[in-house]
Amino acid sequence: MRVTPIALVCVLAACTTADHAPADTVAAAIPDTAAAAASQFITAHGFGPLALGMTTADAGKVTNGALTVPSPSAPDQCEYAKWETAPNGVMVMFVGGVLKRVDVMQPGTPTVEGLEVGQTAARADSLYGAKATRQPHKYEAGEYLIVKPLAPQDSLQRLVVELTGGKVARFRIGLFPEVEWVEGCA
């Protein structure tokens, strides 16, 4: 098989262009959902692009349509969103079409201070104990560590950490009173 000079130039040009593409351009073209999820933390104001108090329409926009919530049939209807790209164990609650809380049920999504599901109760105490009140757990041998307010200007915000068996079983950030609802939307 004979290769013409024009064919050779075309092949070399294609290889050279691909070989010298900026690394950030190539990386940007490949979605890395694990890295994106790992870089997101639960904060006093929400999770990732989701902010407490935002509407379902705004939440859908900031997640590029990945998060959907049925339209409320009543002003106080409670619904957990369907969010296909959420990290495992992260659930988002809307009441009356407004984001009221974010629940974290599995390890992998920490608070900005570094608390994660599965860590010890001592770790939770070291991070929040001085700012928290304690209440007995409603259903298990354990307790709730309730941190309020997380931000001084936001007196309705709370972090509720559920401690059972000496470990962080789950936690949630949200607005009072919904953040303290033990059964979620039930």
Rank of each mutant, 00 (worst) to 15 (best):
P5W: 07
I6D: 15
A7E: 08
L8F: 05
L8M: 08
L12C: 09
L12H: 08
A13S: 13
A13D: 06
A13G: 12
A14T: 06
T17R: 07
T17K: 05
A18V: 15
A18M: 15
P22Q: 15
D24P: 02
T25S: 10
A27M: 03
A29N: 06
A29H: 03
I30D: 09
I30G: 03
I30W: 08
I30H: 09
D32G: 05
D32H: 12
T33N: 05
A36R: 11
A36E: 13
A37Q: 14
F41C: 00
F41I: 02
F41N: 04
T43L: 01
T43C: 00
T43K: 00
G48I: 01
P49L: 02
P49I: 00
L50F: 01
A51Y: 01
G53K: 04
T55E: 01
T56L: 06
A57C: 02
A59G: 04
V62L: 01
T63W: 03
N64T: 10
N64Q: 10
N64G: 03
N64S: 09
G65V: 05
G65P: 04
A66K: 02
A66Y: 00
T68W: 01
T68I: 08
P75N: 14
P75S: 14
D76G: 00
Q77H: 14
Y80W: 12
Y80F: 15
W83Q: 03
E84N: 09
T85D: 10
P87G: 07
N88F: 10
G89H: 10
G89D: 07
M93T: 06
V95I: 11
V95Q: 02
V95R: 01
G97T: 04
K100F: 03
R101T: 01
D103R: 04
Q106P: 05
T109C: 04
V112H: 03
V112M: 01
L115Y: 06
T120W: 11
T120I: 08
A122Q: 14
A122R: 11
D125E: 15
Y128G: 05
G129W: 11
G129M: 09
G129K: 08
K131M: 07
A132G: 13
T133L: 08
T133K: 14
R134P: 07
Q135C: 02
H137F: 15
K138E: 15
Y139G: 10
E140H: 11
I146S: 07
K148W: 11
P149S: 13
A151S: 12
P152H: 11
Q153R: 13
S155P: 10
S155E: 14
L156C: 09
Q157K: 13
V160G: 06
E162A: 07
L163K: 03
K167G: 00
V168I: 13
A169G: 00
R170K: 15
R172N: 12
R172M: 11
L175N: 09
L175T: 13
F176A: 13
F176K: 05
P177D: 13
E178M: 08
E180L: 07
W181A: 13
V182H: 07
E183N: 13
G184V: 13
G184C: 11
C185A: 09
